[in-house]
Design a protein around this nucleic acid. Structure first.
Lengths: 120, 120
DNA sequence: TAAACAGGTTACTAATAAGTTACCTTCTTA
DNA sequence: TAAGAAGGTAACTTATTAGTAACCTGTTTA
């Protein structure tokens, strides 16, 4: 299959799973950290509201991109890790990333995009 | 670079350029049709509002994904074609597409995703 | 015993994206 | 001469997404 052959339907599904203001950075941490605790992630992403971070994590869990594990005891401990399905997105994410670096270097530098995702 | 190495910033830029309910299907036509006239595209995508289709085409033009050409005369004739930058997205789009087909085949079949993009 | 912890929910507001309808232009055809 | 063509805009409504603030849970620590 050459790269002209994509159909929009699977593309829509994939982009749907990635759509959410904070999902790229969440994926970044999951790809780089093996296992990350909710609070750690929250502190790592300074501007996101707890509610929104929880929402996006929940969506990603429902989409099968990540695994959520409650460790017993108190205070509650919840750890997130990338799933196999999530890790399988790696090549596609890397392809998007390198496209942006090759063809949209300026926007990457500005850290300013239409959706106003500003990442410190 | 292995696929663990992506950074979220370029990823954000790329996803920003793709974010818009009708952009995947627009890209689909642009990849498959060399040149397409506005009205033809509008008729091919039955449910989109003209205003929205125009908005997304304008954003894609500003992002450099496509080229817009007005051909003189009346009635107005406007043709869209994929740009080099847009075509360069091909591998990434194909990777997303095949990820969805491998790992999310059910959603692909259902044509129903969270964002409620229902196609056809 | 009161505060702090971690993860989460609820009720609410603000911002962005998408959809609807009506209208404009200028040429051609009925 | 009135209607229809193609591309586009303007004013407005609706839906979806993100953000804010307050509150809840039980165990530990001060």
């Amino acid at each position: 299959m050459n790269y002209n052959e994509f159909k929009y339907c699977g593309l829509n599904v994939a982009l749907g799973a990635l759509s959410g203001k904070w999902k790229p950075i969440i994926l970044y941490y999951l790809f780089h950290q093996e296992e990350i605790r909710f609070t750690e992630l929250w502190r790592a992403i300074p501007k996101v509201a707890k509610k929104v971070l929880l929402e996006q994590l929940k969506q990603m869990e429902q989409d099968g991109l990540l695994l959520r594990e409650e460790k017993n005891g108190f205070p509650p401990e919840v750890w997130y890790r990338i799933s196999e399905k999530g890790r399988a997105l790696g090549p596609a994410l890397a392809a998007l990333e390198s496209w942006a670096n090759e063809y949209a270097a300026e926007e990457v530098d500005l850290l300013k995009i239409r959706r106003k995702v500003t990442l410190s």
